[in-house]
Design a protein around this nucleic acid. Structure first.
Lengths: 211, 211
DNA sequence: TTTTTTTAATTAACACCGTTAATTATATTT
DNA sequence: AAATATAATTAACGGTGTTAATTAAAAAAA
C-alpha cells in the first residue's frame, strides 16, 4: 500500500480512537461533563493533540451527532416493512419515543443541544443530510396516510412537522425534567415512560378520528 | 422602622441589583455568556459577593426562570376573557408561540435548559408552582373544550399534554436551529416565524375536525 | 466615646474549561 | 548521516464556578 493511504489510515485510526473515548465519556457522564482534556486523558494523549484531528469541541459533538442519526436510522429500518402508511406512522412515533428514552444522551445531542447544529451552520456546505433524510421519511409516510384517506385538506408538510414536533415535544419535556412536576395530574400511570406512550396513544386516537 | 426590617430591605435591594444585572446580560448575550464574574463587574461587586445573595448560578437561573413565567402569565391574562373553550385553546397556543419567538432567551431558560429545573429538584420542597399553574390553565381549557363537544373519549390530561408538547416541540425545534434545514420542504412560507404559525393552524384544523 | 462584636465585602486560591503558539520528539526522505 | 517533514508535546492565555481566609465597615456594648 502506498504512503499516502497508509498515512490516512493511521490518521483515521487516531480520529476513531478519540471519538470512541469521547463517546465513552459522553455516554457515561453526558456531554457537558465530557471535556477535551478528559477525552485526551482517556487515551493517554495531550489535550492539544485532539485539535490535530478535530477542529474543535463542536466538531466532536457533530460527529457524535451523526452517529446518533445512524443509530436512529437503524431503528427505523424495520418500518420499511410496514405497508400501511398509518400503521407506519404509529410505529415511527413509538420507535422515536423508545429511542429517545433509551438513548437520552444521544437524543440531547441530536435534537436538543445547539452545538452540533451550530457546527453544521458554520460549515461551507451547511446542509443537514441526516435530518432531511429522516424528515423525508416522515413526509413520505404522511403522504401514504393521505392516500389512505387521512389528513384530507391538510398540508402534508405541516402535518409531518406537527407529528415530529409533538413527539419531540414529549421527549424534550421529559428529558429536561419538566414532566416530573406536572405528572401530579397523571398519578394513574405506573411507570414514568408510560406517560409518554400513553400521551402518544391519545394522539394516535386523535389522528385515527380524522380519517 | 426596626433594624431587622431595614436590613432585610437592604438585602433585598442588593439581591435585586444583582438580578437586574444578570437579566441585562442574559437578555443581551444569552445565559451561556452570562457569568457570575460578568454580573459582578456590571454592578461593581466582587464575584464572590454574589454568593452572599444567591446560592449558586442555578439559583440565579431559577429566579430568572420565575420572572419568565410571570411574563408569560401576563400574556395569558387576556385569555380569561375568551369564553369559548376551543377559541381559548387556539389563542393560548398563539400567545405561547409568540412569547417563545419574541422572548427566545426566556423561553430557553423556562422550557429548554436543565439548570433551573435541576435547582427546583434540589430544593427542600421541590415543587414547581409556576409550571403547575400554567399547565392547570391548559387542563381547564381542554376540559371546557370537552364540554363543548371536543375530544370525546379522550383523556383530558393526555390531550393537554399533547397540546403543550406540540407547541413546545415547534418552539424548541425552531430555537435550537433544527427547522432551518428541513424548511426546504416549506419554501412557500415567506417569513420564518410563519412556519410555526402555519403548522399550528394545521394542528387547529386537525382538532377542529374532531368535534 | 471607645471597645467589642457582628456583618458585609474582599482578596487569594482551587480546580477546572476550550483553545493557540511555540517547541520538542519522531519518522521519513534525501 | 543529515536534512526535512510530521506528529505530539509543553507552556500559556483568558476564561469559568466556587470556597476559604481575610479585611473593611457598621452596630452594639462597655
Amino acid at each position: 500500500m502506498g504512503r499516502k493511504e497508509k498515512d490516512s489510515k493511521q490518521i483515521e485510526s487516531v480520529r476513531l480512537r478519540i471519538l470512541e473515548a469521547a463517546k465513552d465519556l459522553f455516554l457515561k457522564h453526558g456531554f457537558e461533563a465530557t471535556s477535551i482534556r478528559k477525552i485526551a486523558a482517556e487515551i493517554n494523549l495531550s489535550p492539544t493533540t485532539i485539535y490535530l484531528y478535530y477542529k474543535d469541541k463542536g466538531d466532536i459533538a457533530y460527529t457524535l451527532h451523526k452517529e446518533g442519526f445512524k443509530l436512529l436510522g437503524q431503528q427505523f429500518v424495520v418500518l420499511q416493512h410496514v405497508s400501511s402508511g398509518f400503521e407506519r406512522l404509529k410505529a415511527m412515533g413509538k420507535v422515536y419515543l423508545n429511542f429517545a428514552m433509551q438513548n437520552t444522551d444521544f437524543y440531547q445531542l441530536m435534537f436538543i443541544m445547539k452545538e452540533p447544529m451550530d457546527f453544521i451552520a458554520e460549515k461551507a456546505t451547511c446542509e443537514w443530510e441526516e435530518g432531511e433524510l429522516a424528515f423525508g421519511a416522515l413526509q413520505q409516510t404522511v403522504l401514504d396516510c393521505k392516500s389512505e384517506g387521512y389528513f384530507k385538506g391538510l398540508n402534508e408538510n405541516n402535518v409531518a412537522l406537527n407529528v415530529w414536533a409533538l413527539v419531540h415535544g414529549l421527549c424534550s419535556l421529559k428529558l429536561q425534567g419538566h414532566l416530573d412536576h406536572v405528572a401530579g395530574a397523571h398519578l394513574h400511570v405506573a411507570q414514568d415512560s408510560d406517560l409518554l406512550e400513553e400521551a402518544f396513544e391519545t394522539f394516535v386516537m386523535m389522528l385515527d378520528k380524522m380519517k
